[in-house]
Simulated assay, not measured.
Amino acid sequence: MEYQYPMDVDWTTEEKIAVITFFQAVEKAYETGIPKKELVDAYKRFKEVVPSKAEEKTHCAAFEKGSGYSPYRTVKSAKEAEETAIIRM
């Protein structure tokens, strides 16, 4: 698939890396599976960069539109899973 990660031009390089890492974690959940801790850690860092719920929804919707992968459903699955779970979508 060819799509771009949603980015904000005002983010620092470190913030962009954190956002990309989260979206890559979502991709991994769909493609191969990812340990819950790895996904949750990536999401926590993403939320440090994107604390606003409205902004989160905007970026996640853009990612889902381009990739077909739902960050919302992935994070929801992780929150409901046991600590040692592998998240597979």
Rank of each mutant, 00 (worst) to 15 (best):
A81I: 02
Y69F: 14
E48F: 07
E15H: 08
E55K: 15
R73C: 09
T21D: 11
F23I: 03
V50H: 00
E80C: 06
P6E: 05
F22A: 01
E15A: 12
A29T: 00
T12K: 06
E48K: 13
Y5Q: 06
K53D: 15
P71Q: 00
P51I: 07
I17M: 08
F23G: 01
K36L: 05
P51N: 09
Y72L: 07
A18Q: 12
H59A: 09
E27Y: 07
R45K: 15
Y5W: 12
V26F: 03
K47F: 04
Y3N: 09
Y30E: 02
T58N: 10
K37S: 14
S77Y: 01
E31D: 15
F46M: 03
V75K: 01
T12H: 07
A81K: 07
F63S: 02
A61Y: 03
K76Y: 10
V26A: 07
T12R: 04
T21S: 13
D8P: 05
E2I: 13
T58S: 11
E48T: 14
P71I: 01
A42K: 01
K57C: 06
A25N: 07
E27K: 07
Y30G: 11
E31L: 13
D41K: 00
D41I: 02
P35Q: 14
G66L: 01
D41G: 07
E55Q: 15
K47A: 08
Q24T: 10
K76L: 08
T58P: 04
E2K: 14
T32P: 06
E56L: 05
R73W: 03
A18D: 13
W11I: 06
P51Y: 03
K57M: 08
T58M: 09
K47E: 11
K36G: 08
A25C: 12
T74K: 01
P51V: 06
Y3H: 13
I86L: 05
K37G: 10
A29G: 11
Y30Q: 03
H59R: 14
Q24W: 07
F23Q: 00
T32I: 11
K16P: 04
Y69G: 02
V40D: 04
K57E: 10
D10G: 12
I34H: 01
A54V: 13
A18C: 11
E15K: 03
T74Q: 03
I86E: 03
V50C: 10
G68A: 11
E55P: 07
T58Y: 09
E14Y: 09
S67N: 09
E14V: 15
Y43H: 07
K76H: 10
T32N: 13
C60S: 08
A62R: 04
M7N: 12
A18I: 03
E2G: 13
C60W: 00
K79H: 10
I20E: 09
T74W: 01
A29N: 02
Y5D: 06
A78K: 01
F63Y: 11
V49Q: 02
V19F: 05
A54I: 05
I34M: 03
I20Y: 05
E2L: 14
Y72H: 13
F22I: 03
I86S: 05
I86D: 02
Y30S: 06
E82A: 15
P35S: 12
K53M: 10
K65M: 06
T84Q: 06
G33S: 11
F46P: 00
I20V: 15
V40L: 14
I86W: 04
V9Y: 11
T21A: 14
T21Q: 09
K76G: 08
K28G: 10
